[in-house]
Amino acid sequence: MLPLRWILCLSALGFALPSQAQDGKLLYEQNCAACHLPDQMVVGPSLIEITKLYQKKPKEFLQWANKPQKKRPGVIDMPSMAHLGDANLLAIRDYMIKASAGLKEKPAVTKDPFERVARRPEVQRIFMPDVGPAAIAVALPGDLSYCFDAGDCRLRTIWRGDFINGWLYWKSNGKATGVIMGKVLWHLPEDTTLPAAKFHGYELNDAGIPTFSYERQGAQFEETIEPAGKNLVRRFKVTTAQPLVLTIDNDTQASAGTRQGNKLTLTPEQAKSFTLTVTLS
């Protein structure tokens, strides 16, 4: 009877019972559940998979938990759990095995539960492929979309088809880019020689089409990008005291200015209002 009395006394006083390792379930909830679900891969593998790997390998489990390494491509590295101590880590392992018993692995969610009805125009800032990290994707009326880079303040990519699928980005913590849902027709690579630009934002017109504001080398730009038949037209209003010199590619025609090869020069007066038309296939 003596042990029972002691247990009652201790619990009445609100003490935890002494033991070497703490409660595995509690430890799991406090230290692991942020990234590991019982039956589904989220940030890290499920408890079902962990059980498969380590059910008969406690030593390897401890090795991993104390010093995790890069193992799965595209998955965030696990931080070391060495601070918990081996006894607690083994208690967590026991709990993981128990908690996953009889469960069936759920497939990772692959379809966007919040898929939106396509509408045009639409503006969406998100990481985009092959441009800088401050990207703005825009769907235009019709079937053209583009990506404007708010870092270097340039139109960077044009595609035809559907807009973007942001699910890979949105379902995670930012470790993916949006996917272009069409055929890329035009793209500018990074240009490290370009003078720095300052982005000032954009304004939507009544139709919802953005006009971007930015400045480069003292010139103030306003640029509106719209469809023109199967092509795309960039309407500029630039305030500048100096002649404006732009580099344009072979697919681009200017409404004003003097062109020499890929160099377009506009007087301050011409710069006030001009267009660049990008011919698309």
Partner: peptide
């Protein structure tokens, strides 16, 4: 809102996911 005005973007972005 029709005006999305950039007040400050003078910080770096490496594209790393954790740069909230």
């Amino acid at each position: 809102a029709n005006v999305y005005r950039t007040l400050w973007d003078g910080f770096g972005m490496s594209g790393n996911y954790h740069e909230f």
